[in-house]
Design a protein around this nucleic acid. Structure first.
Lengths: 248, 248
DNA sequence: ATCATAGTCGTCTGGCTGACGATAAACACC
DNA sequence: GGTGTTTATCGTCAGCCAGACGACTATGAT
């Protein structure tokens, strides 16, 4: 039994699925697309697709992200291209033998975090892609709003990853435009965690953490009220001490 | 192009690779096996193997773990079978098109944490499996001690996962025998992090965290010195506030 | 008896967080 | 121009917790 013998090991299809999260109107939203063909025809699903024969997993995920949203991936090597960049990381791999009724498919899920976008596009068909609050797919256990395949599970894992990761990293800035205020950043935390935070303590915390925020000098009143300082994300990626998520 | 057409998507081989970590003689060690066939014949590699056609990824990882070490997986549903149980979780998936010179292989790496074991077994051949300190494979960049394929990368990711996860979870107890002392638990942290911790502050911290440790009533002197209380792992899995890893 | 080793309990201080009062700077309206 | 509303920002205070470290305890080795 040579390892070169193709009959010596089973053959799999490999896909990437994307959990694309953003914050719109004070709530955490995920991108979903409507399936145009069986199985689960007409149901909502996470965007994704097959990995090409000579394509790296991360490249496949980045390609799908561009196809579905037009977002480029925020390349850490070239941080100045950050105009419309998103954060992209591998989330986990889902390979239950029954997860796809057609055949054996192993899906490498990725998590993408993006600032609020004007409108989703899905190959030109605007009706087939939509931002929806994540609770739409996570709350109820009824079949009504549920996603195709095991995508509700994947979405739940992605949301949980995002919720925990903004605690100890500066990842929350990935939900913001390149320049943002402390209040906008706070509303990101509030939307992702689903809690209210004290504006004064939050302001003290984030401005006091070295490397988290860099003031740009400008101010804005786009949120109303007193003008707020504008910041860009600093170089720090790990927050120590972390942001504390309030209890229960 | 029907989705049922096998020529419509590329075919992959899927493997599981294991990062099995334990603490021996005050140092964090990983299980490696010597490759008996090309490519990388004679080189050390992480244990692993092909996923079967109708096998879940976690099942494949658990099967490989038993084959290589005899360890059962610590099933959260039946915590009383904890005699020789190990912790097992998915680590990440590695799918660079060039990572295996034979063919396109996607490997789903898993991380296993085990208490110190008498001796590794690898299908009866004791010479071909070994515990080695992780620095052996992570420190130098020379080709000397390096692992086959991208296994050095995988091992590094697994070690980093373990290092960060014992901060905010009770996972360090997975490195201990079912009953252990505070000092033994502290030596686990010291070995995994590679730092020295203050025994008095550590003792205060772990005994003061509700649900982390439950006293069994017994004592032991197996470490010498004054007898120490024996504990079992409590039900808590998340530590809040976390253990703090000392700075640089 | 003495020493070495390891475990356990206390004390103190500084830093950080949560709760919350107070002030500042814009806009909307009358 | 006042007045109220909104959001941002600064300050204060008490409590908790971690790091530093002293003191004491209980075993085995010599």
């Amino acid at each position: 039994m040579s390892p070169y013998d193709p009959s010596a090991y089973p053959s799999f299809a490999v896909t990437v699925d994307l959990v694309v999260l953003t914050v719109r109107r004070h709530s955490l939203c995920a991108l979903t697309v409507r399936r145009g063909e069986p199985p689960f025809q007409g149901r909502w699903a996470l965007p994704g697709g097959f990995v090409k024969a000579d394509e790296d997993l991360a490249d496949a995920a980045a390609r799908e992200l561009v196809e579905e949203t037009g977002l480029c991936v925020h390349d850490p090597a070239a941080p100045e291209s950050s105009g419309n960049g998103a954060h992209l990381e591998q989330l986990g791999t889902y390979g239950d033998p029954q997860r796809d009724p057609r055949m054996r498919v192993v899906s490498v899920a990725h998590l993408a975090l993006a600032p609020d976008l004007p409108a989703p596009r899905a190959g030109g068909d605007a009706n087939s892609a939509r931002w929806s609050p994540v609770e739409t797919f996570l709350d109820q256990d009824g079949e009504q709003g549920s996603l195709a395949f095991d995508h509700a599970q994947i979405l739940g894992d992605g949301v949980e990853r995002a919720r925990s990761k903004i605690e100890y990293s500066s990842l929350a800035t990935a939900f913001c435009t390149p320049e943002f205020t402390v209040g906008e950043l706070r509303r990101v935390y509030e939307a992702v965690w689903g809690v209210a935070l004290d504006p004064r303590n939050f302001h003290r915390k984030v401005t006091g953490t070295p490397g988290f925020l860099v003031p740009t000098g400008g101010t804005t009143t786009r949120q109303g009220g007193r003008p707020a300082q504008l910041f860009r994300a600093g170089g720090a990626t790990l927050l120590n001490p972390p942001m504390l998520r309030p209890e229960v």
